[in-house]
Design a protein around this nucleic acid. Structure first.
Length: 918
RNA sequence: GCCCAGGUGGUGAAAUUGGUAGACACGCUAGACUUAGGAUCUAGUGCCUUUGGUGUGGAGGUUCAAGUCCUCUCCUGGGCACCA
């Protein structure tokens, strides 16, 4: 038989489907393992070769774990709500559901073509009402919950109401919006709508006036992680800050737990660090400042209470409500004109303008709480309204931003920490002794912070405080193609549907655009009396890993029983671009469900592997300007040429297929070439560059083409052989022949070129067994470390080392099992050639036998200082005489000993033997 | 500015605890076979001024021994960014 992948691969794909080979149930006799891929958004372009990288890696690991005896859950689904399908709908009028369905079909075909071992019976689609029912359910639960800081968990809102009824809100320590205090009896006297308004301040899913990122071009609000440099992540449209009534999730309540949980997961340091930055914990103090000749006083947040005596001015954020309260009459005009200017700036302007210091004096003064001095209050847009209290004490000597401000407006600068030179720049380091600081003088910064914190609390001026940068997540988008929020309004106040009324299905609309009044598309639906916004993209992906555990459950997201069995995802594979989006939301969502007893683990994803992005490798041709002549790469500098992208599919190893080029685009029909000589032949060599894979750059490589030309097994092997899984790398097919050759060679262990079966039952020699066990050992270790590229190398070495004519079952049968995760189709075929009726999927991973591997040979000698050292391979139990004998027998020993004799052998550590020569 | 991850042949890359740097593969060179192919096989291939020297971005250091550890520095990629 010939290695005919085009026959073998469809054959086994069909077999797997018909036999439900990868279907998995909660088998309590086996240990479980859960391998999850980040499910894709099914885009219209289909999969390119970059997409499957992670899927191939997780599939290999899945198949390995199965062979090791684990019951592996390895599901796949689709993150099917999203913008592209909606935009396509706006252009064409085609319902996004149809577009999505078609795209999913295409994805599924491509997935199947690569031979993934997903359990498709567990497929989930976020746009399916039977799925988003549970997304809506979670939202309702969040609406019906509040965050109890005392017990550090989410609790039912009914508990809160019970407390309110008896004691009011004085004793409640909750994560909530500012709420005036009331007593129990006052609560009972409040009207229904007054009570609901107060409860909204406490709910974890809440509706409130919020400063949001508004993207006019997209017509929707965006979450912080969807905005990069003041532009929308999708489409690069400008984003502005705007106050709007919007749904949010109180994710900030979970900041500390999200931070702490990072220490318990096996993720890359860089992703954890990104999340830590995003959460942005900072420890400091809130201190009260009184405004001179006024009833007003306000709190500021500082991480440097030690520099209290260096305060020479205060700054309020322009959006702070205090601005109006403190501004004096004679400053009113200039303050107002400043506020106007600030208002007009978009986020982007503000970012671009970082170096320009702007601000205005309010006319008012604070009284320094310790020195009693008068301190001017300024307004400046370098202070953010949304962080801390929106007001700061400025210490120009020890904060670079305050320094720049003081210089700009000629405000005095007082040094309070020695060690720097503040004549040209501020001294920000937390290192040095305090000066000019009354009772802090002489203390180190650290001690001074402690002492000042203590003093602040003792005098009732404030308290220690931890601030987080993490914002509550805006949970609404003014779009059509998303989950409807299960909310209706009564007297202008929101109420959620009952669980039994779910799902609230997405209604039909006549167009997918906002209405003329600017309402979201849902306003077009007949008789729609619910919330008009839909949920954001991250909603559906936040708990999908739980749904896979029990995907057909009609009652709940997943049964307790299934969750108790599968617990959490053991291995999660996906791109690092989700570090501050999905991976935070999902952890938050899980913690919330955990608080309510619906999830059984604190962290959803134990181990995370981020596959690197596969970039495109573009090819170029060089056209002489004003002609239809193309010159080869090495000649291009001799002519005045234009560099043009050329379709990489008509280029092989950087050599252009000139005939294909002429038929590629009509304009090149009569193209002429100036070639260069390579290998005695005239060839056209293309230039190349690494760029993001995209249609316009003609560098998209579709996995289907690779499958056609080399087979899916080669594609799988090659993507892994390209390099370490976590590393970004350009795609090129320059080396694909190598792995393809390997598969043919492997086939050659079974069949010769005349397609005659060579497999035999002869006994293996020690040498052959050594090669086998070496390979098993290496392959197993590499599997555990996700080092698939070196694992493949180990196979190649084995094939090189095996003596010619070794076609022994004892050797090639275990090798076939090792190969199966990488090249499952070929392995299945060969497994059946070996006479097995069952799928190779059910074969047990071979164990290596250390006894075949023991080596007691020395490695190499080195000499220095008249002593000889031999490095030994293993910590062998030879005695000194035996070692000495072995060394003397070494072919090189005489050369290194240089005619001298060994006097003494000293065994130093495990591997090194000192030899004193005379 | 701050944080993280990396820099090894012509190319993708290997290298347990510090222990023969460049495994494996591509490419290249020469040869064999041939039904003439983009097939297969054999040998060679870090660099240089080749009986030797040199070499893991650069400069120092520790060590018998450094790609690996330490200090400084340069470059590349990613993230955060007026967060007090």
């Amino acid at each position: 038989m010939k290695y005919d992948y085009n026959k073998i691969e469809p054959k086994w794909q069909k077999y797997w489907e018909e036999n439900q080979t990868f279907k998995v149930t909660e088998d309590k006799t086996k240990p479980k393992y859960y391998v999850l891929d980040m499910f894709p958004y099914p885009s219209g372009a289909g999969l390119h070769v970059g997409h499957p990288l992670g899927y191939i890696a997780s599939d290999i690991y899945t198949r390995y774990k199965r062979a090791k005896g684990f019951n592996v859950l390895h599901p796949m689904g689709f993150d099917a709500f999203g913008l592209p399908a909606e935009q396509y709908a706006i252009q064409t009028g085609q319902h996004p559901a149809i577009t999505t369905e078609n795209n999913i079909k295409r994805y599924r075909e491509q997935f199947d073509r690569i031979g993934f071992s997903f359990d498709w019976s567990r497929e989930v689609r976020t746009c399916d009402p039977s799925y988003y029912k549970h997304t809506q359910w979670a939202f309702i639960k969040m609406f019906e919950s509040w965050y109890d800081k005392e017990h550090n968990k989410a609790r039912a809102i009914t508990d809160l109401v019970a407390v309110f009824e008896s004691y009011g809100n004085k004793s409640i320590n909750a994560s909530c919006a500012e709420t005036p205090t009331f007593s129990g009896s006052e609560w009972k006297r409040f009207s229904e709508s007054e009570q609901q308004k107060i409860l909204l301040n406490y709910r974890i899913a809440f509706l409130a006036d919020t400063t949001v990122n508004w993207c006019p071009a997209l017509g929707t609000v965006l979450a912080n992680d969807e905005v990069k440099d003041g532009l929308s992540e999708r489409g690069d449209h400008p984003v502005e800050q705007k106050v709007m009534k919007q749904w949010s999730l109180r994710i900030s309540a979970y900041a500390q737990r999200l931070l702490e949980g990072l220490d318990k997961v096996d993720w890359s340091e860089s992703i954890k660090e990104q999340q830590r930055n995003w959460i942005g914990r900072s420890e400091g103090a809130e201190v009260l400042f009184k405004v001179k000749d006024s009833e007003v006083n306000f709190e500021i947040f500082t991480t440097r209470p030690d520099t209290m005596f260096g305060v020479t001015f205060m700054v309020l954020a322009p959006e702070s409500e205090l601005v109006d309260k403190v501004t004096t009459d004679d400053q009113k005009a200039s303050v107002n004109s400043y506020l106007e200017v600030v208002k007009k700036k978009t986020d982007r302007d503000r970012l671009a303008d970082v170096k320009n210091v702007t601000g205005v004096f309010s006319g008012a003064y604070c009284i320094h709480p310790f020195s009693g001095e008068e301190i001017p209050i300024w307004i400046g847009d370098y202070v953010l309204g949304g962080y801390g209290t929106g007001a700061i004490m400025a210490v120009p000597a020890h904060d670079s931003r305050d320094y720049a401000f003081a210089k700009e407006f000629n405000i005095s600068i007082t040094e309070v920490v020695s060690g720097g030179d503040i004549s040209n720049e501020s001294y920000d380091a937390k290192d040095g002794k305090l000066v000019n600081s009354d009772f802090l003088n002489g203390l180190e910064v650290k001690e001074a912070i402690k002492k000042m914190n203590h003093e602040v609390e003792a005098r009732g001026l404030g308290k220690k405080k931890i601030n987080y940068r993490l914002r509550d997540a805006i949970f609404a988008r003014q779009r059509y193609w998303g989950e409807p929020l299960p909310v209706y309004f009564k007297d202008g106040l929101p109420y959620t549907l009952k669980e039994s009324e779910l799902p609230l299905e997405l209604p039909e609309v006549d167009a997918y655009l906002p209405t003329e009044d600017g309402d979201p598309p849902l306003a077009r639906a007949d008789g729609w009396k619910f919330e008009l916004s839909t949920m954001p993209g991250f909603a559906g992906s936040s708990a999908y890993y739980l749904r896979y555990m029990d995907p057909h459950n009609k009652k709940e997201l997943a049964s307790r029983e299934s969750m108790d069995y599968w617990k959490s995802v053991d291995l999660y594979v996906g791109g690092s671009e989700h570090a501050t989006g999905h991976l935070i939301y999902s952890r938050f969502w899980n913690k919330f469900l955990f608080d309510l007893g619906y999830s059984v683990v604190k962290e959803p994803f134990k181990k995370l592997v981020n596959q690197g992005m596969i970039q495109g490798r573009s090819n170029f041709v060089y056209r002489i300007k004003g002609s239809n002549k193309f010159v080869s790469h090495s000649l291009k500098d001799k002519h005045d040429t234009t560099e043009l992208h050329v379709d990489v599919n008509i280029v092989d190893n950087d050599f252009l297929d000139m005939e294909a080029f002429k038929t590629w685009l009509p304009e090149y029909k009569d193209a002429e070439f100036m070639t260069e000589e390579v290998d005695g032949a005239q060839k056209y060599k293309c230039g190349f560059a690494t760029e993001k894979m995209s249609k316009s750059k003609w560098n998209v490589v579709n996995p289907d083409i690779i499958c056609e030309r080399y087979g899916a097994d080669t594609l799988r092997l090659y993507e892994m052989f390209l390099g370490p899984i976590e590393q970004a790398k350009p795609w090129n097919t320059n080396g694909i022949e190598g792995v393809h050759r390997f598969l043919k060679k492997f086939w050659g262990l079974f069949y010769d070129q005349d397609e005659k079966l060579l497999l035999n039952e002869e006994e293996a020699t020690d040498e052959e067994l050594k090669i086998l066990h070496k390979t098993i050992k290496k392959a197993s270790e590499d599997m555990e470390n996700f080092s698939f590229n070196t694992s493949i190398s180990a196979f190649m070495i084995a094939l090189n080392e095996l003596p010619k004519g070794c076609h022994k079952r004892a050797i090639i049968e275990p090798l076939t099992i090792l190969l199966a995760p990488f090249a499952p189709h070929q392995a299945e075929e060969l497994w059946s050639v070996l006479g097995h009726k069952d799928s190779v999927t059910h074969a047990a991973w071979p164990e290596f036998n250390e006894s075949f591997l023991t080596e007691s040979t020395y490695k190499y000698p080195v000499s220095f200082n008249g002593k000889m050292r031999y490095l030994l391979d293993l910590d062998i139990n030879l005695n000194k005489e035996q070692i000495e004998k072995a060394i003397l027998e070494h072919e090189n020993s005489q050369k290194y000993l240089d005619g001298k004799t060994i006097k003494k052998v000293i065994i130093v550590p495990k591997k090194i033997v000192n030899i004193v020569v005379g």
